[in-house]
Design a protein around this nucleic acid. Structure first.
Lengths: 207, 207
DNA sequence: CGAGTGATTGACTTAGATCAATGACCGTGG
DNA sequence: CCACGGTCATTGATCTAAGTCAATCACTCG
């Protein structure tokens, strides 16, 4: 199995608070919380995947989101009395629990902490909006170029790949075959160069 | 022209603060701020549309997001010294300016205010993740059903349409023609009923 | 060594985008 | 009051890009 290191989004929490956040193991298919349950806290995926599911008319389950390693989820639980959906492990998983009481108390005591959390949330919405907008681009070629351009590092050229190409395909919203083909075409056209774990954008590119 | 009433996301701000938030008019094509500009505040679209644009390699402009009426944008500016993208009016627009200084000061003074803002951000990420996940559903039929199920009101059946069907199509990520056809088919199959400004989901629906 | 998975490419199919046309509706300006 | 320009709603015809199925090779892990 491939393991990718990812910084915890709440790594900056004060040590005493952090010490009180336990991890919980979940078997595949196990439920972490149900819609309507009283909120106890928010969570971070350490390993595995958790599906957020809402039940619609006739108990049709509708997946809202699948949270992967490093991701924070159920943030809105901090500001609600009950969870708004179910959370079910899609595979054997491991989540860190950040108790609501502790977090809210900490935020009240230390406004700077609150600000840091706000900043995380704000950046998250930014990133999500960008990803959503990207999905409006129909052409695989243009979508991939857009994605790479935005994911490029400080030099605006190099994109480091965490995870596999298949993961990237899922992120971009293409079948992995379509992505392979598109990358091959872009490389053939000299628009990108590929190296293990990285893709480098090349200059020229008029529209 | 069609006008849809939409509650301001920051309507709960204390009156004295609110009084200090001016509105700014923008002509089509006018720039509200540039990438790198010192952050002065966050904004709410009252009318029109604003495009968030980041310049990539070779000055290719890449659109990150288009903000429409009622939407808050540049939230991350509260926690950064400079804007990370350009904001350009896509049409004659009108935005309300929430000065950073005032907001941050208010948050420090009144933790409850800070919490309300966090709640807005948290709900935003929730909604965005759901919309993003929805885009993974390839079939127009399933995507539309998913969308309607989640957008249904308290009775889990009735979806009130703000705006036009074309707007809905854009939200769902389909061409408007595809959406018309899909809705027609669902109605023919008795899965939905259409009325002006609303769509009602019907029972039965096995998989 | 064999099972499992990723990377890659080929062939085929189809769902949805695109182009096009029509009728309804609405506000506006003469 | 009416004609006109604009947009929405709707449906038909056509086309193609991307999804799906399938096969191969390279790795890694136990």
């Amino acid at each position: 199995m491939r393991v990718t290191l990812r910084p915890s989004p709440l790594g900056w929490l004060p040590p005493d608070l952090r010490a009180q956040c336990r991890v919980r193991q979940l078997a595949a298919g196990e439920t972490l919380f149900h819609q309507g349950d009283e909120t106890v806290g928010i969570f971070e995926v350490e390993q595995g995947r958790l599906r957020m599911i809402r039940h619609t008319l006739n108990d049709q389950p509708a997946v809202l989101h699948t949270a992967g390693p490093g991701e924070l989820f159920a943030e809105a639980a901090l500001f609600a009395a009950a969870y708004h959906c179910d959370a079910v492990a899609a595979a054997r998983s491991c989540v860190r629990v950040y108790p609501k009481r502790l977090m809210m108390a900490a935020f009240r005591k230390d406004p700077e902490l609150a600000e840091r959390f706000m900043a995380i949330l704000a950046r998250q919405t930014q990133a999500l909006r960008a990803r959503l907008h990207e999905r409006n681009i129909r052409s695989a070629r243009e979508r991939v170029l857009h994605h790479l351009a935005l994911r490029a590092g400080a030099d605006r050229r190099t994109v480091l790949l965490r995870g596999t190409i298949k993961d990237l395909a899922a992120e971009i919203g293409l079948s992995h075959e379509a992505l392979y083909r598109t990358l091959a075409m872009l490389a053939r056209q000299g628009l990108i160069e590929r190296a293990p774990n990285r893709i480098v954008l090349k200059r020229r590119r008029r529209r």
